[in-house]
Computed example of a mutant assay.
Amino acid sequence: MNKPVLCALELSDQASDEKVLSQAARLAELDGAQLDVVNVLPDFGESWVSGFFEEHHHQKAVKDTTQRLRDLCTKVLGKDGNAKVRHLVATGKAYQEILKVAETAGSGLIVIGAHKPDLKDYLLGPNAARVIRHSDCSVFVVR
């Protein structure tokens, strides 16, 4: 058994997420590796924005996001395939949390989606580019 494959999903574009998940599942299966699926929620707890949310908001967001990950995995991988997947929800800056999850899980590969860059991506750097730059393991980008 090889190191886990970590699939990072945005859950914002279902067609793109399905494509990324399918590719990650294929790569994990080729290696006989564990498939982990992660989504990162923004951290509103450390800013003035947190005042607009009730205390249980984050717990509800984690629960809802976990269910969305399970539903997507079941749709793309089937019920049996989904049963083998570890569904993870992290909170913070997307690229930092993806890297933390990959390190904690001992991932050998991160599979992440990327869109065509626009001007703001060149100035700020998209999450996929940051994951690629800072990752200690291989990164497979799906377009």
Rank of each mutant, 00 (worst) to 15 (best):
L27R: 11
D80E: 15
R133C: 08
A128M: 10
V85T: 10
A114T: 15
D136L: 09
S138K: 09
D80L: 08
E97N: 02
T65M: 07
E55W: 00
D17W: 05
V49D: 12
H115T: 13
D64G: 04
V20L: 09
L27D: 11
H56G: 11
H57M: 09
Q96A: 13
A15N: 06
H56N: 13
F44H: 14
E54Q: 12
G78P: 11
H57A: 15
R133T: 11
R133A: 15
S135Q: 07
H58A: 14
F44E: 08
A128W: 12
K100S: 14
H57V: 12
E55R: 11
L11T: 02
L21F: 09
V49S: 15
E18H: 07
D64C: 02
T104P: 01
A61V: 00
Q14H: 10
K3I: 03
L124T: 14
G45W: 00
E55K: 12
D64Y: 11
L69M: 05
C7A: 14
I98T: 05
Y95Q: 06
V20R: 05
L21H: 05
D64Q: 12
V5C: 04
L35C: 08
A129V: 11
S12A: 13
L35R: 05
H56K: 13
D36S: 14
R133E: 13
T65C: 13
L9K: 02
I98H: 00
Q34K: 14
G125W: 03
V142R: 03
E46A: 14
A105P: 05
C73M: 06
A28Q: 08
A129W: 12
E18F: 04
A83M: 09
G125F: 00
D118Y: 12
K84H: 13
A25M: 01
V142A: 03
V89H: 08
N127T: 15
T91F: 00
V139C: 11
A24M: 03
L11A: 00
A28W: 07
G78F: 10
A83I: 10
R143I: 06
V139K: 09
A33D: 07
A90D: 11
D80R: 09
V111W: 02
H87Q: 13
P117V: 03
Q59G: 11
P117S: 05
G81C: 05
D17E: 11
A128K: 11
C73D: 07
R86I: 06
V85L: 03
P126K: 15
K93W: 00
A83S: 15
E103W: 00
P117N: 10
R130P: 01
S135M: 03
H134Y: 15
P126I: 06
A129L: 11
S138V: 00
V37G: 02
D36V: 14
V38W: 02
L21N: 06
V111L: 04
K3H: 10
I112G: 01
V49I: 15
A33S: 15
Q14S: 14
S22D: 04
A83L: 08
D13A: 05
L109C: 04
E18P: 05
L99G: 03
G106F: 07
K84F: 09
G92W: 01
A102P: 05
G45H: 02
A25S: 09
G106Q: 08
A105C: 12
Q34T: 08
S22H: 03
I98W: 00
N2L: 00
K3T: 07
A90H: 04
L77G: 08
V20D: 06
E54A: 15
A15C: 01
H87N: 14
G125K: 09
D13E: 13
E46F: 07
L6M: 11
